[in-house]
Amino acid sequence: MTRLAELKSGKKARIVHMGVKGPAGQRYREMGMICGEKVEIVRVAPLGDPMEIEVKGYNLSLRKEEAELIIVEVMK
């Protein structure tokens, strides 16, 4: 089990647990970040934060602070 924030760009993973709570958590889910969903790390911003991921066929950016709370399993 890894945190989404730890992944390098190019890695693919499957969401196991969404630890973001409250309205923001609800919004992430509505944006497609649900359990079992496949995501791919596209890139990390030049200053090291935020990161951009691909989910549901589009690109989404989020800060590492939230990505720390999202547990994933890395896929080959």
């Binding site: 923001a24 992430y28 944006m31 951009e52 989404l60 950016s61 989020l62 602070e65 939230e66």
Partner: peptide, 10 residues
């Protein structure tokens, strides 16, 4: 600041 949830449109 509120969490960043930003779409990166093509």
């Amino acid at each position: 600041p509120s969490p960043l949830i930003m779409e990166m449109p093509p």
